[in-house]
Nucleic acid binder design. Structure first.
Lengths: 325, 325
DNA sequence: ATAATGAATGTAAGCGGTTTCATAAAGGAG
DNA sequence: CTCCTTTATGAAACCGCTTACATTCATTAT
């Protein structure tokens, strides 16, 4: 099949060490030998095996920085079930397996001495990323995407998830589906919002959306507005579980039955989604995998595989519970 | 730092071979030894190094199938600069480096005997994918995404690219920007279309779109329609270069100056984009990388890293030429 | 002429696993 | 009580590559 160092060495009539030197352009090699080796390499169409190379280099133990804003960092170590805590577990497990040393820090405290950077969550600012980018070190954003920056990122696929969820509702015969969404400046909400629109349009239904504020405090007023301007919907899609649950409460206060009168669909699968009554149908975000995939991405970059920057979106999983028919 | 087989063996008081047997659940191991080893493993928090394992397994040379529709397959070998020809080069180069044997075939001819499958382009049908999925073998789509299927895919990021391109036009002071787009059932067009909408809305501009047919034959009529219903735009965004160039021709026929009167932005960076007059400003798709990234994805899957399915989007590159101010 | 220096190459020991083969102990059959 | 098979384990080779160290040969300084 494909050839290896030994084959090349034999053909060129030299030792494997010499071939290795030519490949890595390291140490002394005479012009003549170099030519012979290069000839043999191209003749055999030889390409070094990355895995072996990595192994031989003693599995280079890289140091990577995991950087986040203050709020995120605090929550990581104190709340075991919190979103980022799980993400971080995914990162550290991968890191251990692949011999990366992880170092946690806040944005302000970060030094530029690491081999790579994992930037966690939405608290990271544009400017900080741009500044960090100048260090030329590999960087990957986790749960954050910034259009136009062309920086590697790993996120949950809100678009795909929303389409899947909405189509499920449509299949159940629900038609009047409205979306309650958070600020669209947040890429996550925007993504889910777009998925909702796409699904509705695909099925010739009229989308209708209402925006709640960051904290979701205006939910009571928002539901009033919705009922007044739109009438009773068949279903409500909340772009995150917290908002969906809050909306559900408001509807129950107004004597609507969930899901008989109105179905509710969330997004996230937070802990309380399964404990609330009725339990919330939602799209599960794979937090642990978010971390491990991001770590793998950074790892690939660290390995020097000259890779094109990508946005990696993890598909979500639709979890049918009791808040939808 | 992190521990290895030897460490575990020493702690458990057995040989490395025994530990390996326990890990792989292979060969004879007594209950007692197994317990000891497992205890040592968890005590040391040991995780096997994937690279070493791969290497030791003789660098398992996998066989992968590259499957496409008839049209794509034909073009691959005959036209050196064609889209998929370049993509395939990216795949095969990666494959060689990582000891994957590639086999090309059409959908109809494919047997289910390969270790993994790379499905190329839009000719692949939904049903075929679903059928193939039942083989449980790793699969990755290249330049194709199907909402809701949750199957690994690698595509070009039309959304991000379009935003970047449109924002560039806006920065130049252009306001009346319309989009000519192909059928939105094609995920690629839809993606770029969504990006256009997002960019316009973000800047408080009114989006206006016109759809051309698959082949782009109706361009003359479409331009007439555009001029009649919208008036003269400042700029036109075509969701692919072919359409953009055709639109540019039509405008020139109608005595408009490009870019003085109207700027034209394409998407793809096909060969003729740089040779046409005026040369076309466009968003370059990285075809070669599309292939190599997809191959890497499949490779990861083949390595048995139990990975969550993802959609990987490659960022595009904005190429400023003469068709825009 | 001789020692010291540097260039060019080879030998062999890992990197962290897997696996073949050998060996030993424990049963079961005759 | 032997002989053979099964079970359990370890020693060592190997996967493809890198690299420290050893060796050889040609220069150059003394």
């Amino acid at each position: 099949m494909s050839s290896n160092l030994k084959d090349v060495a034999k053909l060129a009539g030299v030792s494997t060490a010499t071939v290795s030197r030519v490949i890595n352009n390291k140490g002394y090699i005479s012009k003549k030998t170099k030519r012979k080796v290069i000839k043999a390499i191209s003749e055999l169409n030889y390409l070094p095996a990355k895995t072996a190379r990595f192994l031989a280099k003693k599995g280079q133990t890289h140091n990577i920085a995991i950087i986040s804003g203050e709020r995120v960092l605090d929550s990581i170590f104190s709340h075991p079930d919190e979103f980022y805590t799980v993400v971080v577990k995914g990162i550290t497990d991968f890191a251990k397996k692949h011999r990366l040393n992880t170092h946690f820090m806040k944005m302000e405290e970060a030094e530029y001495i690491y081999d790579g950077y994992l930037l966690l969550g939405g608290e990271i600012t544009d400017n900080y990323i741009k500044e960090l980018k100048t260090t030329q070190k590999p960087i990957a954003l986790v749960d954050q995407y910034i259009p136009g920056l062309k920086i590697d990122c790993v996120v949950s696929d809100g678009y795909d998830g929303a389409i899947y969820g909405i189509e499920n509702l449509i299949q159940k015969g629900l038609r009047k589906i409205v979306a309650l969404h958070g600020p669209l400046s947040h890429f996550g909400f925007k993504d889910r919002y777009d998925g909702y629109i796409a699904a509705m349009e695909k099925h010739g239904l009229l989308p209708k959306t209402y925006e709640y504020d960051e904290i979701g405090n205006n939910m009571s007023a928002l539901i009033d507005l919705l009922l007044k301007t739109y009438g009773k919907p068949d279903a409500i899609f909340g772009t995150n579980d917290t908002a969906a649950i809050r909306a559900m409460e408001e509807l129950k206060n107004r004597k609507f039955k969930v899901p008989e009168d109105i179905s509710i669909l969330g997004f996230d699968d937070i802990v309380s989604a399964s404990t609330v009554t009725p339990s919330l149908t939602t799209l599960k975000i794979f937090k642990y995998e978010l971390g491990s995939v991001a770590a793998r991405r950074l790892f690939t970059l660290l390995m020097g595989e000259e890779e094109h920057p990508t946005k990696t979106s993890l598909f979500t999983h639709f979890i049918k519970r009791d808040s939808t028919i």
